[in-house]
């Protein structure tokens, strides 16, 4: 038998290319596509939803039961809700009619407030505890109202739906696996940028509402100052991973735009103290 031993050269079945080159090309290319796609979709959803009249939004997201009637819950809670409602009525921007605000209380020790589509603003009992004056509380309520004036809740909802659909189209519906996590993570990071932008916008408009009502911006930073003192503030995620801008940045912004910081501060009504005492029991 004739057998000729020879060595087959390397690199016929395998590639000599450095794996990191492929890695950076893929990571860069895919994240670029995802960021572009998410941005374009988000911007168009934002743009189109801005054309929906606020009356329509109020109709779609009208609450089934009228919470301001409040036949449930103790008297103090109803009184606080009525006070919050009246506070928001005072803060309203007369140049923007058609907006409806519906304030309610949530028993939760974390100081927080949020707004849902249709102008439903929820304030936690922890927030009432964290602020010291009506001005501090008004800033938070004005911030949430500003979100609604800019139609942020509806826009975020629409954006979320559109982006979720796009991600399913790109990476399959099961949502597991490394690729889906990577694409999803990139999309979330892109969206967080939007969210922070909205917060800045709401801070600025909220401050305007506060200035119109009180003539000065005293107490505007009360809430943020209180949040900064919380033990939670230490393991706050880095700004690029957060839905909100950093607390220091927000305090700086408010102080930079503030005028006549030394006006008279309105105290909180006594009923809030009664309500908080009840909650603590």
């Amino acid at each position: 038998m004739d057998y000729e031993p020879k060595i087959i050269p390397e690199g016929i079945n395998t590639s000599r290319e450095h794996p990191l080159r492929e890695f950076f090309l893929l990571v860069g290319g895919i994240s670029l596509v995802v960021v572009l796609l998410v941005s374009v979709l988000a911007a168009s959803a934002d743009f189109l939803l801005g054309y929906i009249p606020v009356e329509k939004e109020n109709q779609w997201f009208a609450q089934r039961h009228d919470s301001s009637a409040g036949d449930t819950g103790p008297a103090a809670e109803r009184e606080v809700e009525a006070y919050l409602q009246q506070l928001s009525n005072r803060l309203r921007d007369p140049a923007r009619p058609g907006f409806r605000f519906d304030l309610s209380l949530l028993e939760n020790p974390a100081p927080n407030a949020f707004v849902l589509p249709g102008g439903h603003i929820v304030v936690t009992s922890g927030l009432l505890d964290a602020v010291e004056s009506e001005n501090g509380l008004a800033m938070v309520v004005a911030h949430e109202m500003a979100h609604q004036y800019h139609r942020h809740p509806l826009r975020s909802l629409g954006r979320g739906v559109v982006i979720a659909l796009a991600l399913v189209a790109i990476s399959g519906a099961d949502g597991s696996g490394l690729a889906q996590q990577f694409v999803g993570g990139t999309a979330v990071l892109t969206q967080l940028g939007y969210s922070r932008e909205q917060e800045r916008e709401a801070d600025a408009t909220g401050l305007e509402l506060l200035l119109r009502q009180y003539g000065h911006s005293g107490g505007a930073v009360e809430f943020f100052a209180a949040v900064r003192e919380l033990p939670l503030a230490d393991d706050e995620p880095p700004v690029f991973l957060s839905t909100h801008p950093g607390i220091d940045e927000r305090i700086d912004m408010l102080q930079a735009h503030a005028r006549h910081n030394d006006g008279p501060i309105t105290p909180l009504p006594a009923v809030i103290g009664e309500y908080l005492a009840q909650v603590e029991q």
């Binding site: 890695f23 893929l26 990571v27 990476s171 490394l178 694409v183």
Partner: peptide, 25 residues
């Protein structure tokens, strides 16, 4: 893990999975 991640990304765009070729080779 690195090759698996590369393969997962590659599966989105298609094309030669270079990192697995050397593994199987």
């Amino acid at each position: 893990y690195f090759k698996r991640f590369l393969a997962a990304l590659r599966a989105l765009v298609g094309g030669r999975l270079k990192s697995y070729e050397s593994l199987l080779d």
